[in-house]
């Protein structure tokens, strides 16, 4: 591995590849923009030079420590270049390099480039390749690796609050406590609860009722959603979650009618009599009324949404009203 880490032996500061004795046997293939080229980018000289050397080694199908360092150099300038990542992976595999070392390097790149797709793709590729080797070393090696991966995920989550992939329900609750409107966290909670292999049927569609989910878990999730909705009644995430839980449990929407009514007062009354604190509650009520066959009341709820409470979606509410006429919500 010493060859891979020239920094241990002194780095040549600011030197260009053309002046680097390590590259003197390589003739770079400079890129010539043809006439009539589209979308040329005014990129720095350093990038152009590195790409010229990359072309030369890719063409020669060279896999070597210096190629690996070249990919790192380019990735530092343009971490989104998928071909360079793929070439890097080919070098790692061809040189039979240590996957944990590569993952450790990747962690640093990932933390500097939170929104990058390639960091995850590269990781996926490395782990896929590493797993068969790892499984030969037995379950404790796998567990140790899993723990280090989880630890990295925690680190990157701490950096990127927009992403939620933690494996623990508690972590998701913390995110929702921090911001009840965090839709990613709601989505991930649904996955954690309803795709848990301990109490769910594998392979079901998201909106397919699952009899294997215990009733106490359904009760817990309904109560959880209700408590969070009370904090932000106009945030749709909690309502979508509540409805999703009921459908997954095969329960009637009417089982939450009392709760939903807390947010809608005096539907259809004149003037100040009608008060809607959440359009999503009124939306759900319309579904509840339709579910029990009370078309007139469902129609009233949808009409009031389009007329007064949620006018920009009047097209949608009118479509729902038409659905009532033909006897189905579809």
């Amino acid at each position: 591995m010493a060859l891979l880490k020239p920094e241990l032996y002194g780095v040549r500061e600011g030197s260009r590849l053309a002046e680097d004795p390590e590259w003197e046997d390589v003739v770079p293939i400079a890129h010539q923009e043809p006439e009539g080229a589209l979308a040329a980018i005014a990129y720095p000289e350093e990038y152009a030079e590195a790409m010229a050397y990359l072309r030369a080694v890719m063409k020669a199908k060279e896999h070597s420590p210096r190629c690996l360092r070249l990919t790192e150099h380019i990735i530092n300038m343009n971490p989104a270049h998928y071909t360079v990542w793929l070439y890097r992976a080919a070098n790692v595999f061809a040189l039979n390099l240590s996957i944990p070392d590569e993952i450790a390097w990747l962690n640093g790149v990932a933390l500097r480039n939170l929104k990058n797709y390639q960091i995850w793709h590269h990781r996926h590729l490395l782990v896929e390749h590493y797993y068969p080797q790892l499984s030969l070393q037995g379950p404790s090696a796998i567990a140790e690796f899993a723990a280090s991966e989880q630890s990295f995920l925690r680190d990157i989550l701490a950096e990127d609050t927009k992403t939620t992939t933690s494996a623990e329900l508690a972590a998701i609750e913390t995110l929702l406590d921090d911001d009840v409107r965090n839709n990613s966290a709601w989505s991930h909670r649904f996955f954690l609860v309803f795709s848990n292999p301990a109490h769910s049927t594998p392979g079901l569609a998201a909106s397919e009722p699952d009899p294997k989910v215990p009733q106490e878990i359904v009760d817990r999730e309904v109560a959880y959603a209700m408590a969070k909705i009370r904090l932000a009644p106009q945030s749709q995430s909690g309502w979508n979650y509540l409805r999703g839980v009921l459908v997954k449990a095969g329960r009637k929407l009417a089982t939450v009618e009392g709760f939903t009514n807390e947010f809608v007062k005096g539907l259809g009354e004149d003037g100040e009599g009608e008060d809607v604190r959440s359009t999503h509650a009124l939306d759900l009520l319309a579904e509840i009324y339709a579910e029990r066959g009370d078309k007139d009341k469902a129609d009233l709820a949808l009409r009031r949404l389009g007329e007064k409470w949620d006018r920009i979606r009047v097209g949608y509410w009118e479509w729902r009203r038409k659905g009532l006429e033909i006897g189905a919500e579809a």
Partner: peptide
Amino acid sequence: LPHHYLSNEG
């Protein structure tokens, strides 16, 4: 295109 398109060079 200006240099901030570099990440789209690929």
